[in-house]
Each structure stands twice: as structure tokens, then as C-alpha cells.
Design a protein around this nucleic acid. Sequence first.
DNA 1: AAATATACTGAACAAGCGTTCAGTTTTTCT
DNA 2: AGAAAAACTGAACGCTTGTTCAGTATATTT
Lengths: 200, 200
Amino acid sequence: MKRRGSAESKRCILEAAGQLFAEAGYADTTIRKVAARAGLSVGTIYLYYSNKEELYSELFRRRLENFSAMTEPLRDEEPLAAMEGLIDSYLDYAVKKAKLVSMQIREHDLEIKKPLKKAFFDSQKRLISDILKKGVRKKVFRKMDCDATASVIFYCLRGMILAQLSGDLGDDAGGRPATRKPCDLFLRGLLADRQGRGEE
Amino acid sequence: MKRRGSAESKRCILEAAGQLFAEAGYADTTIRKVAARAGLSVGTIYLYYSNKEELYSELFRRRLENFSAMTEPLRDEEPLAAMEGLIDSYLDYAVKKAKLVSMQIREHDLEIKKPLKKAFFDSQKRLISDILKKGVRKKVFRKMDCDATASVIFYCLRGMILAQLSGDLGDDAGGRPATRKPCDLFLRGLLADRQGRGEE
DNA sequence: AAATATACTGAACAAGCGTTCAGTTTTTCT
DNA sequence: AGAAAAACTGAACGCTTGTTCAGTATATTT
């Protein structure tokens, strides 16, 4: 029986692979398992993806695009709100896609991903830098080297993802990470002088 | 010829394994390769370590102990200098042991490591928290939730290690990471109000 | 209805892995 | 010197993996 067309099959494979990579990581996700979950045979996988790496790359590419599309709109918000939104985006992502993120970290230096990753990193840092520049212009943030600071913030956010993964932050009632408050550390460091944040 | 005694052999194995794990990661480091580099046969490895995991655990444990021993003395320095010293320690470590750190990240969720890692994390966070508390007491730092902030700083530092690994920070003339300056972001966020840092 | 194209199958292959163990060599002890 | 202990060897075992390919089954076209 030829149930699915080729497009539909590709989709099924991608979905099954996505789940498995997220659950078990790159090494422990076998083509056999992907085939089983997709309801297809091993050989069929190779009709659509020439090897395991290519399958993984395709998934990875889509994931990065998705995330970028999510954060890009922050550009148009007020600088402080934009920074807060960014922190939330990163932490939310870590909470919701814990297993997946965990695998991305595990495979952080897979050669295949390098170019994709670089492009993603650059675009995120540009976003942060733009937010910072806007903040400096509006005198909400102090004067600074925006590009360098954007780099630092970006990697700190990645660090916070590690924290969330380690289950080290806990979350408050709403299931939201309880880290937002301590993250004021960044914001405080950014703000123009003599302008204490309201709370605390 | 029975050249080495059992103690010396153990040492050779550990050294060879350490190099290989650092170069190739957990999965791609095979017992056969370890044996070859140590100048011993496969079977001998199993005389001293009951399996690959145990060998890895032993190495990992030592590494964490080493690092802790390096940072612990910062306790006795002035809070601000201590924080700066901590940042330097983390970045230096990332520079000098790039391959190793890269592997540690890759294997970040190996089950074996979990308990060791937790103990290490806790001790590092306690160190940071103690530095912060001292700073608050001396009124160098603003009032804050020291434990929570310590957590955030710890994970940000880990993020900075990721940055250094990505070759994303570059280094200035002396080979030292050029990130120290942007890292003032933290420090600025910590400092008591109306006390701008001297530089800039 | 026959022929062609499309979608799929799964046993078989080659390679690599961690681990074992019967056996050998060297050292130490009596 | 002989016996016992300690250090070491490496072929062999069982298993898993990514990948291939000679076939089979379903659709589509003529």
C-alpha cells in the first residue's frame, strides 16, 4: 500500500526524528528508531535524506529559523521591555524544549552545524545590539560598547538556559522560571545611572 | 617485561584517557585508543578500571577538584577583586582547556557525572554567594538576594565559557580574553548605587 | 491491460564498540 | 631453584550502528 505521498512521508520522518533527537540525542537516535516511529522502513528514510547528518541538519535549520522569527519582533518594542522579552523568550524556550536544547548543547560542536549556528548567533547578537543602541539613544541605557555588550548578554542568556536545564532555578507558581528577578542583574548593569529599578 | 608497577600504570592510563577524552569526546574515545596511547593492552585497562564509565568518572572528579582548589582562595580577597578574579579564572580555564571544556559540555548530561556535577555546582555557587555577602556587608555591593544572584552569575560565567569556545570573544595582545571589559556588566549590576566604576 | 513511474521494504554488510578470559611473562617470596 | 603472586596480553564474543540494494507493491499513464 502506498499510503502517503512523498511530501507527507518526508514530513512524518522529520517529525519522528525531531521527537527522537529531542528525547535521546544525536548518537542514541538510530535510523531504525526513526523509521519505526514514522511508520516506515529503514530504506525509505534514505530515499528522502541521504544520511543521518542531513536529516539532523534539516531539523536544526528549521528550529533556528523558528526561534529567530519569534524574537525578531522584539526589535520594535521599547528597549527595556525588549530586553525583558528576550530573557523570557530564552528561558521559556529552555523550559518547553528542555530535552531538545539539551541535545543541541550535547552536539554543540558537530561540524555540520557550524555554519548554521554562526549565522544564528550573529543574527541574535545583532538583534540585541540593536536593542541596546536604541536604549542608549533614548538614554534608558548608559553609554556602552553595544556590540561587545550584546555578545556578553547573548552568552549569558545561553548560560541561563544551562541553568534552567540543570533544574537549578526552580519555577514559581505559574510554571514560569523564577529567574526573571535575579536577571535584573543584567538590566541593572545596563540602565543609565541614578535610575534604580522600581521594585525591590 | 613488567616495566611499570600498578600505580604507575594507573597513572599512564589516566593521562592517556585524559588527553583522548579532551581531543575526541566520550563516544569517540575508545578503550583501544586509550590502551594504545598508554602503551598497554586493552585487557590491562580493565584490570584497573572496571569499565569506561568509571575511567571517565575518575578523570572528571579530579578535574573538578582541581578547579575548586584554584578558585577557593578567592574567598579571602576583597569582594570586587574576588569577583574579577573569578571571571578571570573561568575565562582562563576556557582558553587553556578549550578541547576539554568542549567535551564536558558535549557530555553535559551523562548520568555518571550528575552527582559530581551537583556537588561542584553547589560549592561554586556557595563561593560566589559568600563573596557577594561579604561585598554587601562591606557596602561595596548593593543589597540583594545573594544566593539567587550567585546562581545567575555562576551560569552566566558558564555562558561566557561557551562564548570563549565559540572563538567569539577574540583576545587582546596578551592572549588574555578581551571579555573582561564587557564583563563589567555584571560588576556594574552588583555595585552599590552612585558609585560609578573608575574606568570608561 | 500493459507499461512505466513512484513508493516502499528489510535482510544483509561492513565496521566499530565495550568487554571478557584463557594464557603468558615478569617479579617476588620461600 | 621452585612456587606463588602480580602484571599484562590480544584474539574472540556479542551487539549495535549507518548504509545499501535487489526486490515488491501500489499508482499513473498510455
